[in-house]
Simulated assay, not measured.
Amino acid sequence: MTDTLAQTAPPDLTSLRQQVDAALTGFLHAKAEDPPGVEVLDLTDTLRTLLFGGKRLRSVLCLYGWHAGGASGEPTAVVRAAASLELFQAFALVHDDVMDNSDLRRGTPSAHRALATAYTADGGPQERAQAYGLGAAVLLGDLALVWSSELLHTAGLDPDQLARVLPLVHAMRNEVMYGQLLDLRSTGRLSGDVDTALHVIRYKTAKYTVERPLHIGATLAGAAPSVLDACTAFGVPLGEAFQLRDDLLGVFGDPARTGKPVLDDLREGKATVLMALAVQRATPAQSDTLHRLVGRSDLTGEQAAEVREVLEATGARQTVEEMISARYDAARTALDRAPFPAAAALGLRRLAEAATARQR
């Protein structure tokens, strides 16, 4: 891409994803060529399946952040640094599925389920399969975390770039761990506390998924503090809108499109904004329905339909839609004021539209 074209046309989303995919493929191929033992290949095969089913949202946002910060020079090292975020995301997803006891991820068996199946297929006793799958998934997540760090440190960044970006990477990792802890503590506790539910998604998703990837990319470009501030003004509301949409899809979505059963969040008793609003507004009869059914591990489809009726009748679903729209508008307004090159701003605007209107 020429400098002139880069100033007038937004970075091509498909091209960015392809560049990240190529970086991940090269890294994983090198690892597969020299494993410490053949036993680890079950882990790497499972990781590869997980990695190549995602949206590449964080790595693409990192690259958009690089463009927003005034990208210059050859992009290979920045692409590899962005790709390291996908390995970190794989770590987070694997451990998240273990914590949530999820059977599916993107329409295929979650890592701990896939590893348990591989264990029995290799002759392992059935009675040990679940314990093996969980233990191996923890190791797989740990491996993805280690490899994320390795890919970042071997990306080819110059020493100044690496020194500038590491504090942001460390902050991102700390924030998402905090968000996960908040999520664990609140799950299974029906509450009408909307503020606490929003606090969870700010740390578990908004900062981790949007704000920090933008910060990392912009910092790699040597962006001024005003650019980083604009990344926050745009990224936090967009990240909150993204998670609010995810919460709606987790209850009302089409499993064929989302790749996730619509019973999981209800069975786990996820303390979402959607649920907090319903609890806050419920009549005594509606409250009884929620307390009787939400969090039941054996929740049936018919019982889930009862819960959805309450979420609709209390106006909780509609209010969350309105919250998504308000946050999208805030992100768009921030983008209009941001000191980003026009092409980067246009690309981010298109991405924001897709992230908030998505059905998967």
Results as ranks from 00 to 15, higher is better:
L181P: 00
L143M: 11
L190V: 11
D195Q: 12
H153E: 15
C231K: 00
A197D: 04
R185E: 15
N174S: 11
L151I: 07
Y203D: 11
V200D: 02
D158V: 09
R185F: 09
G188K: 04
L181S: 13
L134K: 07
D195V: 15
P125A: 07
E211Q: 14
A137E: 01
A221E: 14
L145I: 04
P167F: 09
A131Q: 10
A224T: 15
Q126L: 12
D183E: 09
R185P: 08
R164P: 09
S186V: 03
Q126A: 14
T219L: 03
A111T: 05
A114V: 04
I201E: 05
S191G: 05
H199Y: 06
E175T: 11
A129E: 05
S149T: 09
H199L: 15
A218C: 08
W147C: 01
A136V: 03
R202F: 06
H112K: 06
V146F: 11
G179N: 04
V165S: 00
R128H: 12
I216P: 05
L214H: 03
A116P: 01
A171Q: 15
H199P: 01
G135W: 01
H170C: 12
D195G: 13
E127C: 08
V138D: 09
G188E: 06
S148I: 01
H112P: 07
T120E: 07
V138F: 09
Q161I: 05
R189K: 14
G217V: 06
G156Q: 09
R164H: 10
S148Q: 00
T232F: 11
T117R: 15
T154F: 00
W147P: 02
E127Y: 15
T154W: 02
V138P: 03
A206K: 00
Q180M: 11
V194P: 03
Q161V: 01
V210S: 04
R173L: 15
A118V: 07
L184P: 07
R173Y: 08
Y132E: 11
H170P: 02
H112T: 02
A111Q: 05
P167H: 10
P213L: 07
P167Q: 12
P213T: 09
L182Y: 05
I216Y: 01
L228N: 03
E175Q: 11
A163G: 14
V227K: 02
S149V: 14
A197M: 03
A111H: 01
V146P: 04
L220A: 10
V200S: 04
